[in-house]
Design a protein around this nucleic acid. Structure first.
Lengths: 150, 150
DNA sequence: ATGTATTTAATGTATATACATATAAATATA
DNA sequence: TATATTTATATGTATATACATTAAATACAT
């Protein structure tokens, strides 16, 4: 086990709270770095994958761009542009919402569902492999993260 | 406390391991979003702040770009370009390494030390405020994150 | 000593984040 | 009804990540 102090060669932290923030940032990078390679061959970025997952969760019911935005992992990301990228690859369809012409209905395509299914198994396996914790520990981690956010 | 399932409106996860990955990504965004506002008035990004912290840790001894890279929280970031941005603001100095002309010695300036000191107190306070955990819990979290990475 | 491989930093390009602003449609209100 | 406000989406710009490539200096093998 490599403690965060070793990993970034910092001798000590102000307090355990500030250490936890750094630890979180570092661990985040550890994950994202490893998963990018997995996504690359499918022509999808992690963020685009996340949007496809949200859309599949709709089970055929179209969703608006703002609803996607609300459910994204990163609230500051730009759902509008991500949807545009996915449309260029024919992974989603966009259509004007009939009852409110400001809104845009977004729907995952068959092609989108296929690439998602293909990727998902690999991502889920990779996630399990990268979290070196027991079942009890990982449940504890989930509780602590939920509580951390207040 | 808002559980991750509520926060991103996802009913269930494949298993606690996959949930932990999503939870980590979401919690990361929670932090970064809040800290960006803090950095903005100082003309520093969180990444640039991190580079300045690494340089200050050197206590006046110059460091190479690759050494900064090794110690960054995100190993995929680009120390060369971050140093360039910091130099434009006169927060760091760059000079050719005398014994190896490939390398570049980087040193934090007085101005860099000043802005860092000014920001640090605020960042540390903000970090404490955002981690809604007891001392025991935050220590537990640090241990779990260290162990998670294997 | 010469040629090859490696190392260090910089740079090019695509994607995404962060945040401000624009545009159009819908809704509220005077 | 006319005007103002709000909402939904798109777009502009700066910064950073991800990854490939380049260029120069150094190390190393023959």
């Amino acid at each position: 086990m490599v403690k965060i102090e070793e990993a970034i060669q910092q001798k000590e932290f102000k307090d355990p709270y500030n250490k936890a923030v750094v630890n979180l940032l570092y661990t985040h990078s550890y994950f994202v770095t490893n998963q990018n390679a997995l996504f690359k061959p499918y022509g999808l970025s992690p963020e685009q994958y996340n949007v496809l997952r949200i859309l599949r969760g709709q089970n055929g019911v179209p969703t608006t761009v703002s609803s996607i935005q609300d459910r994204m992992l990163n609230k500051m990301s730009n759902a509008s542009r991500l949807v545009e990228k996915l449309k260029l690859k024919d992974f989603v369809k966009r259509s004007e919402c009939p009852n409110d012409r400001r809104q845009v209905d977004v729907l995952i395509t068959e092609k989108g569902l296929e690439v998602l299914a293909e990727l998902q198994a690999k991502v889920e396996q990779e996630n399990k492999n990268f979290v070196h914790l027991s079942l009890e520990e990982v449940n504890q981690l989930n509780d602590l993260l939920d509580k951390l956010r207040g």
